[in-house]
Nucleic acid binder design. Structure first.
Lengths: 116, 116
DNA sequence: TATTCATTCAACCTTTTGGTTGAATAATAC
DNA sequence: GTATTATTCAACCAAAAGGTTGAATGAATA
């Protein structure tokens, strides 16, 4: 009896780990076998294999089996969802500047009152 | 002895929980007291308070104390970081289409070979 | 066929997470 | 001054996360 876990949940959670973000970055260079992917990481191959599975679960990585070798490929589509969700808040990014703008406007109004 | 946790780690992790994303969405309407913020959530006030603390830790929420009331405010700046990281991969979003393009080009080349 | 290689599976461990309840704190209202 | 209200703190709990090691599986190679 699983409760629903959205794509966005999975994508954000997958990307919350720095090792997994490094994996994503690494795969932009092209396909890699699990072993080769794991090379620069200071952890066991098994640990990397687990991270890959998390990324797969989030749809961020695709696996192509060729004999005993598994080639991993970046599938960035879920990042688009992340970007879409995030960009909803674009107008809040400069909140402080907006607040400053409002403050300046307010001050302007006050100045005007003073001149009546 | 904490190991380093990046801003991006904190932001992604904070946003990986659907309740916290709802909180962020809710706060776009303006400041809210903790109690009011918690109203629509089917969990204890304490649970919401904890979520707020996670969002604060990631810099996504700011707290303004006024007497016994705490007013919470959205600080979307960390979302900009998330968007920046994510947009690095924009050109991979349409990977499948690119792959199709490459395939079609390849096929075109093959056709050309056949005509030599 | 026996061995090596690429990878996962399984079990285990520690820390973190997301929730609960009950008590503490501190400001407001009666 | 005594309730009441707003919020956190603290302890607890179950489940998940991130890592380890060792065994299993299945292909390739000698």
């Amino acid at each position: 009896m699983n409760i629903a876990v959205s794509n966005l949940d999975l994508a954000f959670a997958a990307l919350a780990d720095p090792t997994r973000r490094r994996i994503v970055a690494r795969l932009t260079r092209g396909e890699l076998r699990v072993t080769d992917l794991a090379l620069p990481f200071a952890m066991s191959l098994n640990a990397v294999s687990k991270h890959v599975k998390v990324l797969e679960g989030a749809g961020l990585v695709r696996r192509r089996r060729e004999g005993r070798e598994h080639y991993l490929q970046l599938r960035a589509a879920p990042l688009r969802e992340v970007a879409r969700w995030t960009s909803q808040y674009e107008r809040f990014w400069n909140q402080r500047l907006d607040a400053l703008g409002a403050f300046l406007e307010q001050q302007q109004e006050n100045d005007d009152e003073g001149s009546q």
